[in-house]
């Protein structure tokens, strides 16, 4: 049931978005001999959760810095809602860098107000919003505490609030889950989805794949300044599909003299025997037939690569 809902919502978000909130056109950025952005083209659809994946040093931060107007591309263009990106657009963005840090000597509430005001929010608005969020996360009692008095997880939550306090329409989160315990990570995950459902677009950059599949509507893998893959996660997985199928059995099987010889075999810890086959589209039924004839078949499925596999494969290639 849940899976269906998330599937439908993905499709819904996919068709809903028309103008991308961010569009990078042939963006180039060089530092000395390093190509941090090598003719990057990408579109971040409005109202989506967009995952920017890549190993360390792939050019994620460089791209984010250009989007947040901290630096400018050497050539190429970045459009914000179809218009050339300018300083004022940055006020509508919220950015949480990977290396976290706030003012240690400042109280939680002062911190929130400062970040809201610096993004152009009025003080009264900022106060309302701060109270709303602190109440929502049951942190009211922490409002007057200095940041250095908080636990790491608490400080992370404050950092998250500082990022979204000014109601940004475009939120950039760099490794948002690092440092969170599973409970808080889920809380943040829910918040991210809620923010998206309320109209915000979220770009999140990570090199950890565990949350990507369940969260991201769209993905982009970059490596060495190049966009290696991009699209919605379903079609990326489909695109990377190597026509592999898995058949699971309760007992060990022999495939001597059969049409389909397994490429791989593994025995799971719970005593299942899994064989991976290759089959072209017109051979699927034949493969299925062969598999059922073996006896003791407990499942048969296409082997769509996980985003993790795709990531590792594309980055290694």
């Amino acid at each position: 049931m849940l899976i269906e809902i998330s599937l439908f919502s993905s499709i819904y978000w996919y068709f809903r978005s028309v103008t991308p909130i961010i569009e990078a056109i042939d963006v180039v950025k060089t530092f000395g001999n390093t190509q941090a952005a090598n003719h990057i083209h990408l579109q971040i659809p409005e109202n989506s959760i967009y995952g920017l994946l890549g190993p360390n040093g792939a050019g994620k931060t460089t791209f984010i810095r250009m989007v947040t107007t901290i630096s400018r591309p050497d050539s190429g263009k970045i459009l914000y809602k179809g218009q050339a990106l300018n300083q004022n657009d940055a006020l509508k963005m919220g950015y949480m860098p990977e290396e976290r840090g706030l003012y240690k000597k400042m109280s939680v509430i002062d911190q929130l107000l400062f970040f809201a005001e610096i993004k152009g929010m009025s003080r009264t608005d900022a106060k309302q919003e701060a109270v709303k969020w602190l109440t929502r996360l049951e942190m009211q009692t922490w409002a007057g505490k200095k940041l250095e008095e908080l636990s790491k997880g608490m400080a992370q939550k404050v950092q998250f609030l500082c990022t979204i306090i000014h109601r940004p329409e475009f939120i950039i989160l760099d490794e948002p889950f690092s440092g969170f315990d599973p409970v808080n990570a889920d809380l943040i995950k829910d918040l991210i989805i809620e923010l998206r459902n309320n109209g915000a677009t979220i770009l999140f950059s990570t090199h950890r794949m565990d949350n990507v599949e369940e969260l991201c509507d769209f993905l982009c893998i970059i490596n060495n300044g190049n966009v290696v893959l991009n699209g919605d996660s379903g079609s990326i997985r489909r695109k990377m599909f190597a026509h592999k199928y898995k058949a699971g059995y309760l007992t060990e099987q022999s495939f001597d003299n059969k049409t389909f010889i397994p490429l791989q075999f593994e025995k799971t810890t719970d005593g299942r025997f899994i064989y991976t086959f290759h089959a072209e589209n017109n051979q699927i039924e034949a493969l299925l037939q062969q598999s059922t004839q073996q006896g003791g078949l407990i499942y048969f499925a296409e082997d769509l690569p996980t985003i993790h596999q795709i990531f590792v494969d594309t980055v290694k290639a």
Binding site: T69, I70, Y95, G101, F115, I118
Partner: peptide, 16 residues
């Protein structure tokens, strides 16, 4: 130095 090492600067430099 604090703003730099804490990366606060990256958060606010786009608006200031």
């Amino acid at each position: 130095l604090e703003e730099k090492t804490n990366r606060i600067v990256e958060v606010i430099v786009s608006s200031v």
